[in-house]
Amino acid sequence: MTVLPLTATDTGRTLEALRTGRQGPLLFIELNIPDLGNAVTDTLLDELLAVLDAQDADTRVIVLSGAGPDFCLGGDRTEFAGHLAEDPTGSGIRASGTKARRVCEALTDNPAVTIARIQGKAIGAGLALALACDLRVGADTATFRLPELALGLPTAWGGLLPRLLNEVGAARVRELVLTSRAFSAQEARSLSVLQNVVPEQDLDTAVMAWAKPVLRRSPAALRVTKLLLNAHAAATRLADGAALDSELMASVLAAAEYARTPEGRRIGHLA
């Protein structure tokens, strides 16, 4: 997708992990760390928050995409390790998790219609970013995976689990989370993870097929409709445990790090 460089006055900062552009009321946001598979870093989260906070009031549609062959390969585990090295109790993980939740909520609760444009792989945190969007179109070759349990982590990032349960259903989510298996774009559509699947070269056309009618809608009616949709979705979740995501992730990682210390190995042996 062709995007224009964002001017400094839009966010007041130079963007390192994103490219953004505007075509009238359309805002394009592209994850732009292709050498790392657009892995989610603290810098990327900070920049997403800055761009979404600074979006123009006239914005009707936001398109979230990824540069390179993959949409997003998930969280940057090297950065997680760095956070734990700085503070084994997990304070850095908690701070990062809080930012992740804020980003996903900024996409879900955005007054504009948010569209995820997905090619290649969408894994873990990448899938969470896509699920936070209202509409999701994927290339027919795209694949998806929730690898957290296989990596020794809880499925606790950005409110991913409650969104999955709401969109997909408990039985299917349980199988995907517990097995950590990959699934195809076609299966993703059957699960409502995607609403449309097209050849990769047709992704932009599919995005614009959704965007163009939205741009003709009354801005006030669009905002109220988004509020209603989100309110009803929240009501069906009854209790949303996403507020615990950062604490759960930090606790599990801190415990794993402690288990590798001499004292942790000693206590584990005595237990």
Score class of each variant (00 low, 15 high):
residue 128 A to L: 03
residue 14 T to N: 01
residue 14 T to Q: 05
residue 215 L to F: 09
residue 186 Q to C: 01
residue 208 M to P: 01
residue 176 L to E: 00
residue 125 A to Y: 06
residue 57 A to T: 08
residue 92 G to S: 08
residue 157 W to P: 06
residue 72 C to E: 08
residue 77 R to L: 06
residue 198 V to F: 10
residue 80 F to V: 06
residue 252 V to N: 01
residue 102 R to K: 15
residue 15 L to W: 15
residue 260 R to E: 15
residue 83 H to P: 06
residue 73 L to I: 14
residue 72 C to R: 02
residue 256 A to Q: 06
residue 16 E to T: 15
residue 247 E to A: 13
residue 33 I to E: 03
residue 238 L to W: 06
residue 238 L to G: 00
residue 241 G to R: 08
residue 230 N to A: 13
residue 136 R to K: 13
residue 154 P to L: 02
residue 58 D to C: 12
residue 88 P to F: 00
residue 68 G to H: 14
residue 109 D to V: 07
residue 270 L to Y: 14
residue 251 S to A: 13
residue 82 G to I: 12
residue 75 G to N: 12
residue 204 D to A: 10
residue 234 A to S: 09
residue 15 L to F: 15
residue 80 F to Q: 09
residue 36 L to K: 06
residue 228 L to D: 07
residue 47 E to L: 01
residue 125 A to T: 09
residue 187 E to C: 03
residue 100 A to W: 05
residue 112 A to W: 10
residue 183 F to V: 01
residue 94 R to K: 14
residue 215 L to D: 01
residue 210 W to T: 00
residue 127 L to P: 00
residue 182 A to L: 07
residue 175 E to G: 00
residue 52 L to H: 03
residue 94 R to F: 04
residue 209 A to Y: 02
residue 195 Q to R: 05
residue 143 T to V: 13
residue 100 A to K: 04
residue 182 A to Q: 10
residue 241 G to W: 04
residue 67 A to H: 11
residue 113 V to C: 07
residue 242 A to E: 08
residue 157 W to G: 05
residue 61 V to Y: 04
residue 15 L to T: 06
residue 48 L to E: 08
residue 64 L to V: 08
residue 53 D to E: 07
residue 227 L to F: 08
residue 140 D to A: 06
residue 190 S to P: 02
residue 187 E to S: 02
residue 182 A to G: 11
residue 159 G to L: 13
residue 157 W to H: 04
residue 94 R to S: 09
residue 120 G to E: 10
residue 177 V to G: 00
residue 172 R to Q: 12
residue 33 I to S: 06
residue 201 Q to S: 03
residue 123 I to N: 01
residue 85 A to T: 09
residue 110 N to M: 13
residue 105 E to N: 05
residue 129 L to N: 07
residue 38 N to M: 06
residue 68 G to F: 15
residue 123 I to V: 15
residue 178 L to P: 02
residue 62 I to E: 03
residue 61 V to S: 00
residue 181 R to I: 11
residue 222 L to N: 00
residue 242 A to W: 05
residue 65 S to P: 01
residue 262 P to E: 10
residue 20 T to A: 14
residue 227 L to W: 07
residue 269 H to N: 08
residue 127 L to D: 03
residue 215 L to M: 12
residue 172 R to C: 00
residue 1 M to D: 05
residue 7 T to Q: 02
residue 159 G to N: 06
residue 258 Y to C: 03
residue 63 V to M: 11
residue 85 A to G: 04
residue 121 K to N: 09
residue 212 K to M: 03
residue 67 A to C: 04
residue 262 P to N: 11
residue 264 G to D: 12
residue 150 A to H: 10
residue 101 R to S: 01
residue 196 N to W: 13
residue 87 D to E: 12
residue 73 L to V: 15
